[in-house]
Design a protein around this nucleic acid. Structure first.
Lengths: 252, 252
DNA sequence: ACGGCATCCCCCCATTTCTGGGGGGATGTT
DNA sequence: AACATCCCCCCAGAAATGGGGGGATGCCGT
């Protein structure tokens, strides 16, 4: 796993790609795709602006050596919402081989089509490593081998699972580190009280109730909520509690 | 990593514990705690009840060889909401050593107290492996070594990071597999409109704004929000949006 | 073809809560 | 002394809550 150091220190998306190629190659997988889904975290807009078609949509980011034609087809068809590997990745944190998908829960016709069409592009044997990130993000690292027999691939996968997971985690971190064009302005610092108030608000309590819980007055709760909301750069408690949860300040 | 097979096949919490003890021991860590946090999916309580004991609080499930007195103290004090290792775990998917927490972002006094008191119980050197599960669940595997020097521990940790991650993931899966008394029952069915309204509310829009976005009247938005809030078993939009996010109905 | 059912849309009301400003003062720490 | 944090209070206008009342589509099974 010598290539991993490079992954940790990668300074561009391209370097991540090269590092992945080398690392995964040494594990016996010759193509891969890394998919990153990220909810677009709030811009600070007070005056109402009607959102454009794209605004607010989940962002899919690709980094892949899968056949270009397939990737293009995939995006064009909006397979991201159907892809059975993605569906499965949402439900587990363990790597899995694509072979294991057919048997367990039957695939819908749409899902089967994704698989069938992938096979036409030479992607028949593969495995997916799900990465559930903070802020409810989900990424998958998909690896595939174009040549060889299935038995060989499965042995390769079984032997390499642990390494694959580590690679996936490192990739996710490297990717996050680099794609932070809007790096959240570095997670704001909330005071203990602001956290407390947001926490209990997220748990459905009114300001008065939070006051009772924390043994302070409703006014003070409102005061802390106002400050916390402002720090988070939003304009309502609804948005503030969601953002506080997404940024990991509180666990509701 | 011979003990891992046992972890994958464990059929009781106790077996997980034994397997962890053995595996982590071989990596040089003599105590551990595994904490599984699960937001308490809905009790329907309207009348205000002071949440002195468990009500509304995140459910922490423990499996640990940490000193009993410490665990008890931890739970009693509700440290789960403050614990800096937990705060940090919420923000990353990489394992980290407790040593790295002090420097980066200064701890609040409440957080520092958790650390100081932990040290009094013999927990000074340690590392945390965060596991972000599906449905926004978070678990941490905390390992510690009571004897030895700090330098030695850090070397141990650096060398074992990859193994620790794998152990943590396997533990999480084993734990989930066994503690699946209530796997999916909480998830309600929302209509498209209810989802839409909750989504844009979670993004900080008022009911009127959501109406503009969806091209329906504010009244209708309120209507859908009322229904969605009721379906989710809560009594305010704050709680509803948080819950909708946690249950994966919407991605803000 | 019919009723039941879910979904979606609109409107009204009284009451409570939140928002976003302002003004204080009390602790601590740096 | 400056600073952050925490606590309390006031106000006016906006928004949410929790009820009620309609009607409009479809889709289902009988």
């Amino acid at each position: 796993m010598a290539h991993l150091d490079a992954l940790e220190r990668a300074e561009s998306i391209a370097e991540i790609g090269a590092s992945l190629q080398a690392t995964l190659g040494s594990l016996g997988f010759d193509t891969y795709s890394y998919v990153h889904v990220r909810p677009p975290l709030g811009k600070r807009i007070r005056s109402f602006v009607p959102p454009s078609s794209q605004d607010g949509r989940v962002v899919h980011e690709f980094l892949a050596t899968f056949p270009d034609a397939w990737v293009e087809h995939y995006i064009l068809q909006g397979y991201g919402d159907v892809d059975p590997t993605f569906q499965a990745a949402m439900g587990t944190i363990l790597p899995f081989s694509w072979r294991d998908l057919g048997g367990r829960n039957d695939l819908s016709s749409g899902q089967r089509r994704v698989f069938d069409e992938a096979r036409d592009f030479g992607l028949s044997m593969g495995a997916t490593i799900p990465i559930h990130g903070p802020e409810s993000g989900l990424s998958t690292l998909n690896v595939s081998a174009s040549g060889g027999h299935e038995k060989e691939f499965e042995e390769n996968y079984q032997a390499g699972r642990q390494d694959l997971l580590w690679v996936a985690v490192q990739t996710h971190e490297a990717f996050l580190r680099l794609s932070e064009d809007a790096p959240e302005q570095g997670r704001v610092r909330l005071t203990d009280r602001e956290r407390d108030c947001l926490l209990w608000t997220a748990r459905g309590k009114t300001a008065w109730e939070v006051g009772q819980i924390l043994a302070i007055s409703e006014e003070t709760v409102l005061f802390h909520l106002k400050n916390g909301t402002r720090k988070l750069g939003v304009f309502s408690k609804h948005h503030a509690v969601v953002k506080a949860v997404m940024q990991g300040h509180i666990i509701p």
